[in-house]
Every structure is written in C-alpha cells, then in structure tokens.
C-alpha cells in the first residue's frame, strides 16, 4: 500500500515537473507563441520574428522594473499572474500523453477547472488594476467566458457521458465515436475565444482598449502573463490532441504524435486568427449561444441514441 502510494506520488511529480509538465511545457509554450506570431506574419506576407523571440521577450521582461504597487490591491495584482501560471502548468501536467501514466477517476473535471483559472485571473487582474481599459477588458472577458464555456463544457460532458468515464487516460485509451468527433468540433469552436485569438480577441483588443486587462502590468508580471498564455496554448491544444490521438503502447510514439497534433492545431488556430477580423461583442455572444443551441440538441439526441443502442 505504502509502496503504491510512493510510486503514485513519483509518477505524479514526474508528470507535473518533466513530461508533459514544466520541463516540456515551458519551452513548448515559447515555441507555440513563436508559431502563432510566425504564422500570422507569413499569412501577411512578412518574414516574422526569429525563432528565439518569445524566449528573448521573456528574459527581457524579467529584467524590467515594475511600477510601485501598495496595499492589498497591489499584492493581489502581483499574485494573479502567478496563480494563472501555476494553474495552467497544472493543467498541462494532467494531460495523459504517455500510455499508463496514471491518472484518476475525475481528473477531467480537475483539468477543466484548472483551464478556467487563468481566465478568472485575467478578469480579476483587470478589475484590480483600476485602469478603465482593464475594466472594459475584464468585463468583456467575463461575458465571453460565460458564453463559450457552456458549449465547451457541454462538449466535454457529452464525450465523457457517452463513454461512461470522467478519467482522462481512460478517455484517451477508448476508441473514438461519432459523438466524440462532434465534441471535438465544439471544443475547436471554443478555442479561439479561450486563447483570445481573432475573431474573438475582444478582451485584449489592441488598437481599441490598449491591452485590456494587461494594460497596467509590466516587467516580470507581464512575463508571467505571457508564459501563462503560452501554457494555456499547450494545455488547450494538448487536450484536443489527446482526444484525437489513437492509443499507442510505445511511449515515444505517443509523445511524438501528441507534439505533432498540438503543432498542427496551433497552426490551424493561428491561420484562422490571421485570416479573420475581430467581431463585435454582441455578435460573438450571439454566435456562441447559437452554437450552444445546436450542440445541445445534437449532444442530447446522440446521447439518448447511444443509450438505446447500448
């Protein structure tokens, strides 16, 4: 019993710190941020930033000073980016990339909760910064997250319910069904809003409300926000990649397929972002509620259908 616990603890730590956790996720986050910028640049006929650019940006931001902050508000403002980074890193660590990597019943729910933390932190950060642009950005983020999260959660829950498990590794091992593909499409529709990409880049709409909730952030705090954004990329595309990827027994094949699929998804999302313009907030909200309606009908209908067949 004690031995089991020790081994479980060791695998959990290895997953959190090495693969797919911090040691893999931080360079992957920088790489995905670069892919995003490079893809947009190529789409616009530019050459784009050099390969190491997100890394240089991160180091440079670490070396900058921050404006003085005082009191509880200042303390909170310093805390939000750290909470966002740790939640996003935890979410990446939960992904069942390697076969037989452990995991527990219900880790899907924990993953969803952790994926939600960075956007909550962004909302809180905008409001605690006291800047009018931050507040507008936060209000937009709040409205947006209420609208897309219903589709997102519905998709994941219908996938989990149709396969009778809330464990990520069990889901990754099971063969996919039509309902799962429906769910993956629904998740893909939500990802641009979750990652603040065009056409749903409302919260950080540059040229419009400066940098939204990030307006008052500088230096190392901003570096943490960039990192948490990159980790969100890794976690969100990784979640889709684990749902798409077939189960492999060889660990290095599984890891390679995971990285390749995530890379493809980042490319797809960046190309969509470069090809579209920002929508208005009411158009966005209407779009997601219509999606909710369509997916709700489809998901409930197919779940019932699968019940009868079983």
């Amino acid at each position: 019993m004690n031995m089991d616990l020790l081994i479980g603890l060791k695998t959990a730590l290895a997953r959190l710190l090495i693969f797919p956790g911090l040691l893999f996720a931080v360079p992957a986050a920088w790489f995905f941020l670069w892919v995003e910028r490079k893809a947009v640049a190529r789409m616009q006929g530019r050459i784009g930033p050099p390969f190491m650019q997100p890394f240089f940006d991160f180091i440079k931001l670490l070396g900058k000073s921050t404006p003085p902050r005082s009191g509880i508000g200042g303390l909170l403002m310093r805390a939000w980016p750290l909470i966002a980074v740790s939640a996003a890193a935890g979410a990446v660590g939960l992904l069942p990339v390697l076969p037989a990597s452990g995991g527990f019943e219900g880790d899907l729910i924990l993953l969803l909760a952790l994926l939600e933390v960075p956007s909550m932190c962004i909302i809180a950060a905008g409001f605690s910064s006291g800047s009018i642009f931050g507040e507008i950005g936060s209000a937009r983020e709040a409205v947006l997250s209420v609208s897309y999260n219903i589709v997102f959660l519905l998709a994941i829950i219908s996938i989990a319910a149709s396969q009778h498990t809330f464990s990520l590794s069990a889901l990754a091992q099971l063969p996919s069904s039509p309902l799962r593909w429906l769910g993956i499409v629904a998740i893909l529709v939500c990802l641009p809003a979750k990652l603040h990409l065009n056409p749903f880049s409302l919260p950080n709409a540059e040229q419009e409300i400066y940098s939204g909730p990030m307006t008052e952030y500088a230096g190392p705090e901003l570096a943490m926000w960039e990192l948490s954004h990159g980790l969100e990329w890794v976690a969100a595309t990784g979640l889709v990649a684990t749902l798409i990827a077939p189960a492999f027994t060889l660990w290095w094949v599984a890891a390679l397929v995971f990285v390749a699929l995530s890379f493809g998804l980042v490319l797809l999302l960046s190309v969509v972002a470069a090809a579209t313009a920002r929508l208005q907030i009411d158009t966005t909200v209407r779009f997601y509620w219509q999606c909710t309606l369509i997916f709700a009908v489809l998901a409930v209908a197919s779940a019932l259908f699968m019940r009868f067949r079983a």
Binding site: K60, P67, E206
Partner: peptide
C-alpha cells in the same frame, strides 16, 4: 511594420500600453 519593411524581424512589437514598452 508592414510587409515591405517588417520590423518584427528584429523583435519589434508595437505595444498598446506604455507599461509594456521599452
């Protein structure tokens, strides 16, 4: 910053907030 000159090759980014700028 446009395709013809593309200053982003040097890492240049036009920021919305003076707090982010160098």
């Amino acid at each position: 910053l446009t395709p013809r000159y593309d200053a982003e090759q040097l890492g240049v980014r036009l920021e919305g907030s003076p707090r982010h700028a160098d």
